[in-house]
């Protein structure tokens, strides 16, 4: 028996796109506020979702609040449309909103992603939704959320610079891995969600909006179109992107973000499956 069967048995109907209209309006209001305050963390009433908190419940609420019958939805996890997590969420969206889904970046109107930003350039009419487990960029250096909030309000990003300085002194550069902080419009310190540094450098002045949803911590952050987004980096030490051990064994690209199939195997492949496919077929 499904939830829909249970609802029918009790004379209830499932709302369109899973969330009831009040919940969707609440999420959309938070998104509008976030768009008006680029890079700021805007609280919202995060709902219980049929995925564990921290597994994309924030991104899912954003997508379900925005999706309409005419949309085409793409969901990726680590650049891959076929992962279990991406497939489950894509199925949920498709079943509850009756929308078309796709694995092709160019065909999608809404792209929900975890850990990657599609490498194929997006258009102004597309929406990028990023799942964001940790919206607070100062969490590692300022454990007290109230103090961190005060520092954001005062535009004081010193703790993040201290963390970067320490990484540079001890390791020669940022070791933040897939969570390098960004400066939005030169003033707001934000977390870009756990995307690789390769992707962080592509966030500047994109023609489409980016909405970042953190369901567990009930925060939404937004980057309106054409927003200035710079990685936190010293003027004389630009941010270095990750390096791969070789070109993609499928498309032969040496420019894309590549991951090793099995650690130590020396076989590198593009992380963005659709971009890799696109290169092979064109």
């Amino acid at each position: 028996m499904t939830v829909a069967d249970l609802a029918r048995a009790h004379a209830q109907t499932m709302p369109y796109a899973y969330l009831d209209e009040r919940s969707k309006r609440e999420v959309r209001r938070a998104m509008l506020k976030a768009l008006a305050l680029p890079g700021r963390q805007v609280p919202f009433a995060s709902r219980e979702m049929p995925v564990a908190r921290g597994w994309g419940s924030g991104g899912l609420q954003v997508t379900l609040s925005m999706v309409g019958p005419g949309d085409v939805v793409k969901v990726i996890d680590q650049g891959d449309d076929g992962s279990l997590n991406a497939s489950s969420m894509r199925d949920l969206i498709a079943q509850t909103a009756a929308v078309e889904t796709t694995t092709r970046t160019r065909e999608a109107s809404i792209i929900q992603s975890r850990h990657r930003i599609p490498e194929i350039p997006l258009r102004a009419d597309q929406l990028l939704v990023l799942q964001m487990p940790h919206p607070e960029p100062l969490r590692r250096v300022v454990p007290d959320p109230a103090r961190a909030a005060a520092m954001h309000a005062e535009g004081d990003a010193t703790p993040a610079w201290v963390e970067l300085y320490d990484d540079t002194v001890r390791h020669g550069g940022s070791t933040g891995g897939a969570d390098h902080p960004i400066l939005v419009d030169g003033v707001s310190l934000a977390s870009p969600s756990p995307v690789p540094r390769f992707d962080v450098l592509t966030l500047d002045r994109r023609p489409h909006p980016v909405i970042l949803g953190a369901g567990r911590l009930a925060r939404i952050t937004a980057l309106p179109p054409w927003t200035s987004v710079q990685p936190l980096a010293f003027a004389d030490r630009p941010l270095r992107t990750e390096s791969a051990g070789g070109p993609c064994e499928r498309c032969d690209s040496a420019e894309s973000y590549r991951v090793e199939g099995n650690p130590g195997s020396g076989r590198w492949r593009c992380s963005d499956v659709d971009a890799c496919t696109d290169r092979r077929t064109t």
Binding site: T158, W161, Y165, F234, A235
Partner: peptide
Amino acid sequence: LARGDRRFE
């Protein structure tokens, strides 16, 4: 860094 210096060297 609190003073606003942003050049590492």
